[in-house]
Design a protein around this nucleic acid. Structure first.
Ligand code: ZN
Ligand code: ZN
Ligand code: ZN
Ligand code: ZN
Lengths: 160, 160
DNA sequence: AGTTGAATGTAATAGTATTACATATCAGTA
DNA sequence: TACTGATATGTAATACTATTACATTCAACT
């Protein structure tokens, strides 16, 4: 398993790659990768951390887009629906997917101090599937999030 | 693994038992199981489904308690902190724990049609711990929720 | 040009949660 | 008993998150 979020990496390439993937996917599936949608994905890729819908709205406003919540929520809904972005339920925030369209059940590790978030792929889905089968429940999607301390905050705050 | 939520069971005994467990725990740990806290736990046990903080507040008001949000949130914070209640992040709602103080990492199955919620115990923590260790993350708590269709809604809505 | 469906702009409102400060209650102690 | 500190409650105000509704714009197709 791998993770993006706690390690340094070639970030400009990272953004370009992800945008390219999204664009190609939209073209292939006749989806409209509009300026607003593209910009929101860029914001999330730039920060590489979870942003609230209103953080995003704020930035959109600065660039001249509409100033009402639906402007942000619509773009986010699109990006989530098509797998470019995940919602972090624990934070009511959104983060760019680290493995777009590799068909996965994401798991997130959320640092409660610095707020960084790493996405991992785990067999958690498999695990729940068995538990679900036992009671006859039909899983459609899973949410797996862990809260704790990231490597950096663990060492820094040995006193915490 | 077992689940409460999709099966019928002796409910009055269920409530009494849970309240007794909570009371005993509070006495043993010098915690104050105040009337408000007890009542909130009873509401959650009675319904055996997830209730929003404002649903709970509404009921408290009917019984003469304070009418401001902190009245509900404080009781919920206490109950969550001491393991009598879990928060369902996906629903922004709260549900009574089905296994109080059996030290567990709960997993929830949430029916998107009827809203029923079942709590299961899974080894998700173990699983995530390995993934976390790989990247140096220190897990403090886990959130595992699955959304889908419960047995009843699966059969009823074969057309959905 | 006319029709359609998707996307956007905007206002209003709904739903969830916290901060701040005053008051009350209770346990332990002088 | 009176004082003290910690805990719990009452209340007002505010902050944060999200949806509904309706008008408008735009591109694609006929
Ligand atoms: Zn992903
Ligand atoms: Zn950190
Ligand atoms: Zn539980
Ligand atoms: Zn159901």
């Amino acid at each position: 398993m791998d993770a993006v979020g706690f390690d340094k990496h070639d970030h400009s390439a990272c953004i370009d790659d992800m945008i390219a993937v999204a664009e190609a996917y939209c073209v292939a599936n006749k989806l409209q990768f509009t300026p607003t949608r593209r910009r929101v994905l860029e914001f999330l890729l730039e920060d590489h951390r979870a942003l609230g819908a209103y953080d995003i709205l704020e930035r959109l406003v600065e660039e001249g887009h509409g100033s009402q919540p639906p402007v942000a929520y619509r773009a986010l809904d699109f990006l989530v629906k098509h797998g470019f972005v995940h919602k972090i339920e624990r934070l009511n925030a959104y983060i760019a997917c680290a493995h777009p369209h590799e068909k996965h059940s994401p798991a997130f590790m959320i640092c409660r101090l610095c707020g960084s978030v790493a996405e991992a792929s785990t067999p958690a889905k498999k695990l729940l599937d068995q538990a679900a089968k036992d009671v006859g429940f039909n899983i459609e999607c899973t949410i797996v999030e862990a809260e704790g301390l990231c490597p950096k905050c663990t060492t820094e705050g040995a006193s915490v």
